[in-house]
Amino acid sequence: MDLRLSIAQTNPVLGDISKNLEEHLRLARAAAADGADLVLFPELSLTGYFLRDQVFDLAMYLDAPELKPLLELSKAVSIVFGMAERHPDGRCFNSLVFLEDGEVLGVHRKVHLVSYGMFDESRDFAPGEEWNTIESRLGRFGLFLCEDLWHLGGQYVRILDRVDALLVASAGPGRGVGPQDGVQGFESLGTWRTLLSAAAMHSLSYVAWANRVGFEDGVAFSGGSALFGPDGRLRTTLDGLEEGELSVSLTSAELHRARQRTPLLRDGRPELVRRALGCAGSTGSADLGADTPAS
């Protein structure tokens, strides 16, 4: 895997798919002209975030004609973007779609919908039901939508799949304006950086984060899109509140070096986890030592 990634920190117009689509095309074309192989957009980048009843109005099938120009452009540059996806059985998903070579290569449907505090996603979306790894000509990718990264399960599955990079798309609202040592920005952004860095360290892979900016009914999205190296270090990040793009390189050589230095993947013991999950349900860890057959 050696590729040039462009991370697009956009400000989608709530509910205006044609305007947002235009912006996707503009940014993806510019990224391609700049030598990018892949461009990553934020969560629900095509529709905006607090959709409520608009989910039903805006959700589209993956073969919707509106997506044709993006598919066409994906022959020049692979594109990962967020949309409200309609399913034939009536469900709608909060989806992250991977386009490559003019096709839908894969789609991640948000598994961990967030429905507490200011969020109410479960009311409008159905949860995704799998953690599939995207096998792209550029490398192996694990796709995450915001809250997905806060649960270890999805990360762990991707670690077992030996992904090269976690591509994380968010519409993360900024919260907390207290003073912080030496940095300026929402307190929630610091929390995200800790989480992303830890995910990179656990998986020994790159972690790319596209988080949107802008406001919807007074809620500020915190931006701060970033790339973390497989050593967990923050490589580069965008200013919190502005739209912008990051252009970054991801290399196999660096991945191999990190994995040689810290052979966590070699030393993982998934069979123990499998045994614990197989025999003990939600309180698995208590039974780790018990003599039960692996399921």
Partner: peptide
Amino acid sequence: QDFRYLRDWKS
């Protein structure tokens, strides 16, 4: 109640 849109609603 069940007609739920943001004030920033666009279409």
